[in-house]
């Protein structure tokens, strides 16, 4: 009898646990549902404030409008270019630094590693960096969006830790056969490191896709706006100028609510498309990174 009772009690706790976790998952997901519901709802439904969970009076008008804007396509293109170029540059430099500094007996290794790690704790700050970027002629060019932040020290540490864990004997054998270090890197180390390269590549790509402050800081010409910066000016542009006062007619304001959410959806979809890979690799990356090298 008492055993039975105990079992029942545990079940109640388990049910409660599942219920609360489901609720938390719902809270994490709901804002996205809200975005989709708004972006797909008809004008009058949004106006009357009926939209909460699902689209009412299904309408693709907002998407048609947003995808008809050349500004969005231009911004999308800029962001794709920056993401691809930035990820490529970041990966190359991170691989070079991690590979070079994973050689235990490299003369000067400690000094060079120290110089890199020190930048984690101290930096010039906003204005001195801004002045340097301006000084080397990157201001208002797309290069400013990835060259000044090409290497992330954390990613460097993760990759160096991985390179160190590779079996030394393979490399040594190749060295004895007369292969240069460059050959060893491309023929032996890189093929063995594809998972970590994918992980760190994704780290960088998501960072570039989502970053907006660098564009705010360095880009002047609206035709070079990135997606996030364009999104910001579409979402908050008017609000910033007239400090929240609702000067427009209510109708246009509500129309833009659908439009705004459609824009949010369009700029988030690429992230959602790669999300399954993101999740798989990122979790691994965090684990490797938490083992300090």
């Amino acid at each position: 009898m008492s055993g039975n009772k105990k079992k029942k009690k545990i079940t109640a706790g388990t049910v409660c646990n599942y219920a609360v976790l489901t609720l938390i998952a719902f809270i994490c997901l709901y804002p996205f549902l809200n975005v989709i519901a708004y972006s797909l709802s008809g004008y009058n439904a949004v106006l009357s404030g009926k939209v909460t969970f699902y689209p009412i009076d299904f309408d693709l008008g907002a998407y048609r409008q947003i995808l008809g804007k050349t500004q969005i396509w231009q911004a999308m293109r800029t962001t794709v270019i920056v993401t691809l170029a930035g990820t490529a540059l970041s990966l190359i430099l991170t691989i070079f630094s991690a590979y070079g500094l994973s050689r235990e007996d490299l003369p000067g290794r400690k000094l060079l590693t120290g110089l890199i790690l020190f930048t984690m704790y101290f930096g010039g700050g906003l204005i001195p960096t801004f002045l340097v970027v301006k000084g080397v002629g990157l201001y208002d060019s797309l290069g400013a969006l990835f060259i000044p932040q090409a290497i992330n020290v954390f990613n460097f540490i993760v990759m160096r830790t991985f390179f160190r864990s590779l079996p030394q004997s393979l490399e040594e054998a190749a060295r004895i056969d007369g292969a240069s270090y460059i050959k060893v890197l491309f023929k032996i180390v890189l093929p063995l490191s594809l998972p970590i390269i994918a992980t760190i590549g994704l780290f960088y790509a998501v960072g570039y896709w989502n970053s907006y402050f660098d564009a705010l800081l360095y880009i002047q010409d609206p035709s070079k706006y990135t997606l996030q910066l364009r999104l910001r000016s579409l979402l908050f542009g008017e609000e910033l100028n007239n400090s929240g006062a609702n000067l427009e007619g209510l109708g246009t304001q509500v129309m833009t609510q659908s439009l705004k959410m459609a824009t949010v959806a369009v700029s988030t979809i690429p992230i959602l498309v790669v999300y399954p890979w993101l999740q798989k690799y990122f979790v691994k990356g965090v684990m490797v990174g938490s083992v300090k090298g």
């Binding site: 490299l106 010039g124 700050g125 001195p128 960096t129 890197l185």
Partner: peptide, 29 residues
């Protein structure tokens, strides 16, 4: 060091990056 010449060559752009975008701004403070 001579044996490692290619490694140093790889580290060159990395260190150039750190000098230009991290250490010169540090002087900028």
């Amino acid at each position: 060091m001579w044996n490692y010449k290619w490694i140093y060559l790889m580290l060159l752009p990395v260190m150039a990056y750190y000098v230009v975008f991290k250490y010169i701004p540090m002087y900028g403070v």
